[in-house]
Every structure is written in C-alpha cells, then in structure tokens.
Design a protein around this nucleic acid. Sequence first.
DNA 1: CGCCAGTCGATTGTCGACAGCCAGCCGGCA
DNA 2: TGCCGGCTGGCTGTCGACAATCGACTGGCG
Lengths: 238, 238
Amino acid sequence: MSSMPDALHSLGQLQNKSLREHIVDVLHEAILCGDLSPGQPLIETELAAQLGVSRAPLREAIQILNSEGLVETIPRRGTRVSTLERKDIVELYSLRGVLEALAIRCIIDQSDPCDLRRLEAICERMLNAANANRLRKVNELDHSFHDTLIAMSGHCLLQTTWNLVALRVRRVMTLRNMRNDDIRLVAYSHLPILDAIRDRDGERATSAIEAHVATGGDLVAEDWEVDAMPTPLHNRDL
Amino acid sequence: MSSMPDALHSLGQLQNKSLREHIVDVLHEAILCGDLSPGQPLIETELAAQLGVSRAPLREAIQILNSEGLVETIPRRGTRVSTLERKDIVELYSLRGVLEALAIRCIIDQSDPCDLRRLEAICERMLNAANANRLRKVNELDHSFHDTLIAMSGHCLLQTTWNLVALRVRRVMTLRNMRNDDIRLVAYSHLPILDAIRDRDGERATSAIEAHVATGGDLVAEDWEVDAMPTPLHNRDL
DNA sequence: CGCCAGTCGATTGTCGACAGCCAGCCGGCA
DNA sequence: TGCCGGCTGGCTGTCGACAATCGACTGGCG
C-alpha cells in the first residue's frame, strides 16, 4: 500500500468507493467539524436530497454511524447526532488510557526493537508547533502520534477498537479549543512516554501514558457544560 | 424496565423490533452457533429469500454485522463471515483483559460500596455447575459473570466496547469446547477476582482478572488451528 | 376548562426493479 | 499451446415508490 505510487494509488481508489462510504465520510466530517451539532436530527429525506443520493445508501451509512456511536437512532422516531455529556468525556479518556497502555505494552513486548523514529519525528514537530502556538497543527500531530502508537502495536483488534475511540476524541477536540499554555503542557507530556518506551520500561510507560491521557481528559472535561454544546434551534424534543 | 410485568413487557416489545434488528439477531445467532461457518459467503439475494425479506433491511443489517467485525465486506465483491486465526484469539483475550481490569477499577472506585451479591450468586452457581460437569451451564454463567462485571462499572462507553468484544468471545467459545478439568480451573479462578474486589484492592483485582483472562485465552488458543475452523465446501476463493 | 378520540402530515421502514461491475468462460490469435 | 479480448451470468449498488407508524393538531364530550 505505501509502496504504491501516489498517482496509481489515487487512481485505483478513484471510483472504488461506494456511495455509502462517501456518505459515511461526509457525515463523519460534518459531525467531527461541528457542521452537524450534537442533538440535531437527521431527516433521511432531507439529507438524501442535500447529498443528491437516494435513501438506501444513506440509511446504510447511518447504520454505520450508529455503530460508531456518532448518532443515536430511536426506532421509528428518527436519528440524531449523539450528544456529549461531561460523563462521556471522562469515560472516553479513561478507556483511551487503557487502550494506549495496552498498545505500549505490545510495542515493548515485540521481539524486534521497533524503531521509534516516526514517533520521535512527530513529537519533535509537535513541540515546535506548540512553541509557535500553532494550535491546529499540534492537534493534528497529537492525533498522528497516538494513531501511530496504536498502529505500531500490531494489534488489529486494538486498532479497530481505537478507531472508534479516536473518532470520539477527534469530535471532542474540535468542540473544545484549549488554551495555548495547556497545548504546550500536553505536547511536552508526550516525551516521558517516548522515553519509557525507548527504555522498554512497561511500568513507567503505562504511568506516563495514563498521566498524559488523564491530563488531556481533565483539561477537556473542565467546565464542559459551560460553553460547549450549543443547543440547536430546531430542537424539537424527541 | 425491570419493574414492568412480563406480559406487558413482551407485549410492548412484540412488534417494536424493526425487520433489520430481527435480521441482525438471526445472523448473530447463526454466526455465533456456527450455523454460518467462518469464510462462508453471504449472498444477499439468497439470504433475503431464505429470510423472506427484501434486500434493503438485510443490507442494513450487514452493515451492522460488519461494524461488529462478524463479517467482512469487499466492495462489489461480496460479504463473508469473518475468519478467526490464532492471532485473533490472542488479541481478543488481551483486549478483554484490559477492559475488564478497567471495569474492576471503576467498581472499586465507586463511592458507594456496591453489593457483590449478584456476582457471588453467579459465581456459586458456576462452581456447582463446574463440579457437575455441566459445561454449557458453566459457559453461560461465565458470560453472565463478566457481563455483570462490566455492567456494574457503570461505564457506558466501556459497556458498548465490551459488547463488541463479548460477541467475539461468545463466538470463540462456541467454536471451541473445553475439557472438563479446564472448565473447573476456569470456574474457580473467578474467586480471587471477587475477593480482591471485596477488599477493594485494585492491584490484586487487576492481577486476578488478567490472570483469569489469560488462562482462558491460553486454553482456547492452544492448538487452535488443529480442529477448529472447518472449511466450508462451497469455498470459492473470493 | 381539561381530557380523550379521530385525523392529518411528516418521516421512517420496506419492497421490487434496474443499472453497473466483476469473475469466469469461451473463442480467436500468435 | 498459451495468452488476450469479448461475452455472459450472477451478484452488488442504487433508486423511486408504497406502506406503516408516530406526533401534533383539532374538535367534541364530560
């Protein structure tokens, strides 16, 4: 996959995506970037018209979104974008912690010492971005870091589970913009993780990642109800 | 929900299930009990005819099964029941371990000391069943035990994540029947978990659950390729 | 004035049919 | 004989239409 020339690669995937997958992508984007706000109802007819597709692939896409937890469906009542309470944030970050800890243990246990250069490169760029207050860039690199971490574990089931969790993390992060000094704090707390992995010290790595995730979670959960979650106007109570 | 009379309850849910959900249930059952063997192709037309439904709800159901990892879809090529390699077992049980460990930590951290009577009752019945070599009953109670454990954590996201994992565990267990003395071994290894939770000793409980899960995983993974996974005859290589 | 039954509009659930794609087969050609 | 190209059957992907259901509104009755 990565050895494939870009031209061929994009050509190969040019029309290989079914309409359903396109719709999933679009809805992902819409929900993650807040275009569809939490609680907003998804009217199939309306959405299908907007997207210029029929309801069949749209409904299939909605099933997927539902499985991912991005929307919630009440039978015969409709589907709406799932809401995010403070409790959800806490749960999300606690789960995330143990998943990443597992990933790190897998990485450390691997027989051949993996090269951490990818992680180190990401980390370095993240620190630079943090010092330059390039908030969006830091976020992006932060995601890369953790995605890479999971990928390096070579644990397929963990990967698929992570994908679900990462979706929610991304969603939370876009709804919540952090302060600049917090950004720097978070960015720098990646370093102990890398160090511990390099030393193949499972205990320390686990502590580091859980501390890192907990910090992030606390920062995000703090005052969650106050300004987040703008209630949409067309909020007929379902 | 639990205070509702059974008659009304079943009446209320009599027709409340959409066709799609019915199909999901049927396919779950079929895959879990091995009626649909790993690798077997799912022909939409054929299946729809067998179930007496149209392809629309069937396809929606397939999307859900796909999200659950029970089937694998190749675009424009078809869907087949996902296979189970030895690697998958190992991954499944390692993930399961950290999820249950998280659940236990949540339970212990709860402010009000929860009552462990439900767990104790299940455990006791499981030991009796194990001593009586009632293998199927032990399995059932084993699932109850772990499901209850997760439920008691009060961690919604963990619950939904667990549901996916539990599906796979059930699938693995039905494909693999254990020896009687192993059953007893597994049954009795629930006790240290309960003890540790009762003492609110997080460290010990975590060790106990991970040991328990690891034991189960080893027993299941052992000689996995040998007799499991009967290759279906109609196995056109997709 | 408040409650209940009937009706209506909107939305979801389901269906049958058509279009497009892919694998495998067959025939021609070097 | 082996390879390449077109044909064909079966299956998936998509669509528009119909049926069923739920909430809101309306009107009558106690």
